[in-house]
Computed example of a mutant assay.
Amino acid sequence: MKIILTNEVSGLGAAGDIVEVKDGYARNYLIPRRFAIRWTKGGEKDVEQIRRARRVREIQTLEDANAVKARLEAVKVRLRTRAGDSGRLFGSVTPADIAAAIKEADGPAVDKRRIELSAPIKSVGSHSFTVRLHPEVAATLDIEVTAA
């Protein structure tokens, strides 16, 4: 099935790309989660609009990405959240929470879709995560989760 990606999908492509995928993957995963829309001749017009919006959001050059990476890695990210006596969180820490904590720590604005967690954060302590700034640049940061 031919689809148009509306969001970046790891291993598949970026927003605005037209890709061919298996029918079940498109119908059961990509389209319901609004990562993609079906390709049509009329939808071809939407591709340029999606690409323009992507260009506005993303970091354009490698030098800019490296500068943002340096600013990010200089920031100490701390997040206070509710936790039980054993150190287990009520819920989990989401990429949106991390993006807000980075902004609160006077770091650069980071899109929550660019934050990659290796595993869900469900306990207090220090955890690592990655921020994809550019296809060639990724910043690895630590977050200190404490009980409120």
Rank of each mutant, 00 (worst) to 15 (best):
D142G: 08
V131G: 09
N7P: 12
V19H: 06
T130A: 10
V68A: 06
G13K: 05
T146D: 15
R54I: 03
R82A: 07
S10F: 06
G91H: 07
R113C: 00
G91I: 06
A96H: 14
A99F: 04
H127K: 10
D23S: 04
D85C: 05
D64L: 13
T40Y: 02
K122Q: 04
L12Q: 05
E58N: 07
E8K: 11
P108H: 07
D64A: 13
I115G: 01
R38Q: 11
L89T: 05
K45Q: 10
I50G: 10
N28M: 00
K122M: 02
T130F: 01
L89S: 04
F90G: 03
A96G: 13
I98T: 11
I98N: 14
R38G: 04
K69R: 14
V93P: 09
A15I: 03
G11P: 05
V75E: 13
S10L: 05
W39I: 03
E136H: 08
F35P: 15
T146Q: 11
A70C: 13
I37G: 04
A26T: 05
I31C: 09
P120K: 15
V21I: 00
K76D: 13
Q49L: 09
A83H: 09
A96L: 09
D17G: 07
Y29T: 03
S10N: 14
G42A: 15
T94M: 15
